[in-house]
């Protein structure tokens, strides 16, 4: 690597430095826009006791679900989980901790984390189990709870295209949590379908500026579909 060139050529290099007990923030919604090969690399590395921050936890044999097989996840911070039998089993056995977080709060925790804001107030979750034990303040007659932001040792992100400088564009609803995740990692790794030269992406259309990105790798993707729904054409 030299200058602003963030491109790495192997998944070993992409995830180098990941250690037991670290926090990893992952982009994706369901199986859409997940960094599927970076997840596979974590599986290969066998890193344990991870805290994973991600809206969901994949399914039994795809996405973050594969990290359950060897019990690599200590804690999940998610808004909706349990699309996999293994997850349920480990949760009920007390082998896996889950911090359920409202989806918008989760997105904002990542956004704020990446933006250097340690906490924020939101009405979401006030008066519910989510608000238990959290500071409550009233603004203009309405109650809000304080939520702390999240940063990670690593952020793993799935983009569509990146240039070698790490400027990233996402495709369709595969964007989801990826732009916030990208800002919130001490080391942010982006895997993409295509790497182009600087200048080939329109500067006005870049979703994640390269300043947030440490490593870029080109991958090939299965892109599994969770709920295949069609209309008659």
């Amino acid at each position: 690597m030299s200058g602003f060139n963030k491109v790495v050529n192997s998944y070993e290099e992409a995830m180098a430095g990941l250690e037991d007990g670290m926090t990893v923030i992952a982009g994706g919604f369901g199986l859409c826009g997940i960094p599927e090969n970076l997840i596979k690399q974590i599986r290969t590395m066998g890193t344990k006791d991870l805290t994973i921050v991600s809206n969901n936890c994949g399914i039994d044999d795809f996405g973050l679900g594969i990290l359950l097989v060897d019990r690599q996840i200590k804690k999940m911070i998610s808004s909706y989980v349990g699309e996999n039998a293994l997850f349920e089993k480990q949760l009920l056995a007390g082998e896996l901790e889950v911090e359920l977080t409202p989806q918008g709060t989760l997105a904002e925790k990542m956004r704020a984390g990446g933006a250097g804001i340690p906490a924020f107030y939101t009405a979401t979750g006030y008066g519910t189990p989510v608000g238990d034990g959290k500071e409550v303040r009233a603004f203009n007659g309405r109650h809000y709870i304080m939520e702390e932001s999240i940063t990670g040792d690593f952020a793993i992100v799935k983009g569509w295209k990146a240039d070698t400088y790490g400027n990233v564009v996402y495709r369709d609803t595969a964007q989801n949590f990826n732009p916030m995740a990208a800002t919130a990692g001490k080391i942010t790794v982006v895997e993409v379908e295509e790497i182009v030269e600087p200048g080939e992406l329109n500067p006005s259309e870049i979703h994640t500026p390269g300043i947030y990105v440490n490593r870029v790798i080109k991958g090939t993707f299965e892109k599994r579909i969770e709920q295949r729904t069609v209309r008659q054409g």
């Binding site: 919604f29 369901g30 199986l31 859409c32 826009g33 569509w160 495709r171 369709d172 609803t173 595969a174 892109k223 599994r224 579909i225 969770e226 709920q227 295949r228 729904t229 069609v230 209309r231 008659q232 054409g233």
Partner: peptide, 18 residues
Amino acid sequence: FPTEDEIDADMINAGKQT
């Protein structure tokens, strides 16, 4: 919902449907 030809894994709704 898409037709069979239009299905795109990158295009889903909050129910995770294409």
